[in-house]
Design a protein around this nucleic acid. Structure first.
Length: 547
RNA sequence: GCGGUCGUAGCUCAGCUUGGAUAGAGCACCAGCCUUCUACCUUUAAAGGAAGUAAGCUGGGGGUCGUGGGUUCAAAUCCCAUCGACCGCGCCA
């Protein structure tokens, strides 16, 4: 039984038009509301009068206990027991699937794809976190997701690293950042280095075996190091795609000849192949995309187009997580793909993470490394925990970092403040994990399994009803988050659940209650535990039973 | 210069797509609370006591929703202008 649907149907029968129900700002006003403003014009009547008329016309609606006209609103009060039973039973039945709206489809999601030149900094981590959460969301909904990381292994940065680590033995992942910063500094007032870099790139593009190996060695160290960090955060990839594959690939030639046929590809005065993108409304000074160098070797956009086509051909649905700095660039790629008869992936753009000290830049070395930050977080978590346990401390610390970044909507800058991210109070990861642990603790004390049945009609305290209503929203929240590819919607919701739970926890004792009520409440908090677990998992936060 | 995103309480953020009932959270600040179901003590282990702890709760103060126009019965929400922040705009990736 779907009470909301019952109300909608009943109104539709009378009004013969699409009904949109709202939720009143205060539950004392009712559970669902129907505003009568829009009817005023055609019925030539004041909205409050319409509301009162409607009451008379509406008969009994299943699951609705009362209908009230409050000014221009028609407010519906639902039968609390119905909603409680319906919600809790659904959760108990669906368990870790509760909230999912099954949509079987194949999706390729590309995320992270940062330069493989050093340890990732906190800012770049946002890409991986958002990407991973979307992966989880889609998999939760039954999709067959293929996670890709596009490794830019043929770039200038790698050449710089190769040059910088010349003569150094046994280069480790942790050394790379320093090497990179050093060589950048040196190259700034030394044109010789610049030359050497291009020589290296040249040799690579010619396919020189020794150069290829040098590049590969460095990139391997990088990818290994980065994967290790991300794996620590439970972020994993199904496949690493290397840009170098497209360096000598015939596909790029095919693309060029296809583009030539459209008449939009031309050779500019310096012999580069350039794509005319007029008519695509791309906000650049000159609507062109340069695809090759003068010697016709490919530039990144061309290789990216080849890669994207490969992805589009192997899955109908493609998603890519890109920084806001790539917005215009992505439009250009999209336009080029359109010309070739392909659709582009759905982009998820996010804004940067800002530190109080200013913007982070790997090149300059003024970064907060993700791994350093993770260590710091673990240290702080341990200090605050009652039970000292390394594994739990890590779970809490990583959760705190993830949540602090994920709770902000994609297009907004994250103002990253170390202390408030690691604070364990209020709207934070630890608060959510604590709510879960608290429930576990109650069951621990209870000492028995979750009761199988109970009289759920005993749950009628206001805090209980509000809590249940919150739980009931989860499926809609998941749908919305999946539609908008926005993990922050989940984050905000899980916090709301934890908050409602805390309110309930203070208003309603559990273990000291009489048997029947105790059982009902145990079943309720077990459902809460399930929803918290489902929601937290979508964010990539692990739950703990004690902390 | 052109284009995009953002601008909501001292700070960090929801709400804006689909305009409506007093603009919501968190942090910080002030005042309380007690249910300890992850902190203390006692004992017949379920209650009592006590302390003042708290990843907790309640209440409070605090807002020209950047600014100025417009549309509308109604604007944080839509439109225009303007200011500010960030990002982008041919041979980097």
């Amino acid at each position: 039984m779907d009470i909301k649907q019952n109300i909608t149907d009943a109104l539709h029968k009378i009004l013969k038009k699409d009904i949109v129900l709202e939720v009143p700002p205060d539950s004392a006003l009712g559970d669902y509301a129907f505003p009568c403003f829009n009817l005023a014009k055609e019925m030539r009547k004041a909205p409050p009068l319409i509301a009162q008329d409607l009451i008379k016309k509406l008969g009994k609606i299943e699951g609705v206990s009362q209908i009230k006209a409050t000014g221009p609103y028609l407010n519906f009060f639902v039968n609390k027991t119905d909603i409680v039973e319906e919600t809790i039973n659904t959760i108990r039945k669906q368990k870790d699937k509760y909230g999912a709206s099954i949509k079987k489809e194949k999706i390729i999601i590309e995320h992270t794809s940062i330069n493989p030149n050093a340890s990732p900094h906190v800012g770049r981590a946002r890409n991986a976190l958002i990407g991973d959460s979307i992966v989880r969301l889609m998999r939760f909904n039954g999709a067959d997701v293929d996670v890709r990381y596009f490794v830019n292994d043929v770039g200038k940065q790698i050449a710089m690293l190769v040059l910088g680590s010349k003569g150094k033995k046994n280069v480790q992942f942790d050394d790379l950042l320093k090497i990179y910063v050093d060589i950048n500094e040196k190259s700034e007032n030394n044109s010789k280095i610049e030359k050497e870099v291009f020589e290296l790139l040249n040799n690579l593009e010619k396919g020189d075996a020794a150069t290829k190996k040098k590049f590969k060695d460095i990139v391997d160290i990088c990818i290994k190091g980065q994967s290790k960090i991300f794996k620590e955060l439970e972020i994993e990839y199904d496949k690493f795609d290397y840009e170098s594959k497209f360096l000598w690939d015939k596909k790029t030639e095919e693309i060029l000849s296809k583009l030539k046929k459209t008449g939009k590809l031309f050779e500019d005065e310096e012999n580069r192949l350039v794509l005319n993108q007029e008519g695509y409304n791309i906000p650049v000074k000159n609507p062109v995309l340069v695809l090759t160098r003068a010697d016709k070797t490919s530039l990144y956009p061309l290789r990216d187009i080849a890669y994207t086509i490969e992805k589009m051909e192997s899955a109908k649905k493609n998603i890519i997580i890109l920084g806001e700095d790539q917005k215009t660039y992505f439009q250009q790629i999209k336009a080029a793909l359109d010309l070739l008869g392909y659709k582009a992936p759905v982009p998820v753009h996010y804004s940067f993470v800002l530190l109080a000290e200013g913007k982070m830049s790997t090149r300059k070395g003024n970064v907060v490394l993700l791994e350093d930050f993770m260590k710091e977080a673990v240290k702080k978590a341990k200090e605050k925990m009652k039970k000292k346990n390394d594994k739990i401390a890590k779970t809490i610390a990583y959760g705190a970092v993830k949540y602090a970044i994920l709770k902000v909507s994609n297009e907004k800058n994250v103002m990253f403040d170390l202390d408030s991210a690691l604070s364990f109070e209020g709207d934070t990861g630890p608060y959510l994990q604590y709510s879960y642990a608290r429930i576990c603790s109650i069951f621990d004390k209870y000492g028995k399994k979750v009761p199988l049945t109970a009289d759920l009609s005993l749950l009628k305290d206001n805090s209980e009803i509000e809590l249940v209503k919150e739980l009931a929203r989860f499926p809609d929240i998941v749908k919305q988050a999946a539609n908008e590819l926005s993990p922050y919607i989940i984050a905000n919701y899980v916090f709301a659940v934890a908050k409602r739970f805390s309110e309930f926890y203070h208003a309603c004792p559990i273990l000291t209650e009489k048997e029947e009520l105790k059982k009902a409440r145990l079943i309720l908090i077990d459902a809460v535990r399930q929803v918290l677990a489902n929601g937290l998992d979508l964010l990539g936060l692990k739950v703990v039973e004690e902390m």
